[in-house]
């Protein structure tokens, strides 16, 4: 009984204390606020540590709890990621096409050609051993048969067939492709034949003339600029055949154009009024000197064992 009375007294005291605390808090006494802030200051390092340590566990439980939602989110993010990847690829592709187009326009602008730009929409099947591409412009864009087709580096081919909105281009690498060529500078002429690859063969018409490796070939041009306009860079000599008894000297040529990476081309609809001559000969890349660092090593006075 005595113990029960003491317990009740204690209860009353503690209740009064609690009510006192509530009253103080509701009256906005600063001491209570400071007390709470102090306790939070002490607790915050523990909470930070707990947060760091428990993050993997929290993530695990979160994943388990929101399994369905997480899966949906993963699927959504995967789709979004695929979309972004596609956009990135498209962007990279567009950048490449833009670069090619800029080079083509520079080339055509230098020569004074009037061109129609077109995008390559398909590469012809090689089952018949022909090398062709299809472009997305045709007669509606002013393209006609037997017009010169340019790439960013030079000759790409010739318009073989033309349709209202598309055109078939015979690439310069096609084995049946022939073009009159002249060597820049010396003006020696010959006929260039495609070989089905990036290399071609040149047969000079005059057996008294000579050619050497590195010589640049340009197109000679045709009557009324069709099928070929003059002055278009074709390629450069990589090998000369000086076999005895040959009627005329022959050479192996490497085209400037990489036919497997054609993205955009330009069809020359009107040639330049005057022959551009050698103005389109590609500038040889300048070799930038690489600075070298010389390190002097002084031998140590005491030999190592």
């Amino acid at each position: 009984m005595r113990n029960g009375g003491r317990a009740r007294l204690l209860l009353v005291i503690l209740m009064v204390t609690s009510l006192f605390l509530i009253t103080l808090d509701l009256r906005g006494v600063k001491v209570i606020d400071n007390f709470k802030q102090g306790s939070q200051t002490i607790m915050s390092p523990f909470q930070r540590a707990g947060s760091v340590v428990l993050t993997p566990v929290k993530n695990f439980f979160s994943d388990v709890t929101h399994l369905g939602r997480t899966r949906n989110q993963i699927e959504k993010l995967k789709a979004e990621n695929a979309n972004l990847k596609q956009q990135l690829i498209n962007r990279k592709n567009a950048d490449v096409l833009l670069k090619q187009l800029k080079s083509i326009l520079d080339l055509a602008g230098t020569a004074g050609y009037k061109v129609v730009n077109a995008k390559v929409i398909s590469h012809g099947s090689s089952q018949s051993f022909s090398q062709t591409i299809t472009i997305d412009s045709g007669t509606n864009a002013g393209i006609k048969k037997n017009m010169t087709v340019l790439s960013q580096y030079g000759i790409a081919g010739v318009v073989k067939d033309v349709y209202p909105n598309t055109a078939l281009i015979q690439l310069a690498s096609d084995p049946s492709f022939r073009i009159g060529a002249r060597i820049a500078g010396t003006q020696q002429i010959g006929i260039l034949n495609g070989r089905g690859t990036r290399s071609a063969s040149l047969q000079l018409l005059d057996n008294s003339t000579t050619i050497k490796e590195g010589d640049v070939l340009l197109s000679r041009g045709s009557i009324a600029n069709r099928p070929f306009v003059p002055g278009v860079p074709l390629g450069y000599v990589t090998g000369v055949d000086n076999s005895a008894g040959a009627v005329a000297q022959t050479a192996t040529i490497r085209y400037y154009t990489n036919f497997s990476t054609l993205g955009v081309v330009a069809v020359v609809v009107t040639g330049s009024k005057s022959n551009p001559g050698d103005s389109l000969v590609p500038v040889k890349p300048r070799v930038k000197p690489i600075p070298t660092v010389t390190v002097f090593v002084t031998p140590s006075p005491t030999p190592t064992k």
């Binding site: 113990n3 029960g4 003491r6 503690l14 204390t17 009253t23 709470k36 939070q40």
Partner: peptide, 30 residues
């Protein structure tokens, strides 16, 4: 009962100190 009251008081006081408590200080204590 005597000890339980003190235990309850101490626990409530600590709960009032918690930052997540939205009520007035002393509510949990009481």
């Amino acid at each position: 009962t005597e000890v339980a009251a003190v235990i309850g008081f101490a626990a409530g006081f600590l709960m009032d100190l918690s930052q997540s408590t939205s009520g007035p200080f002393g509510q949990w204590t009481l």
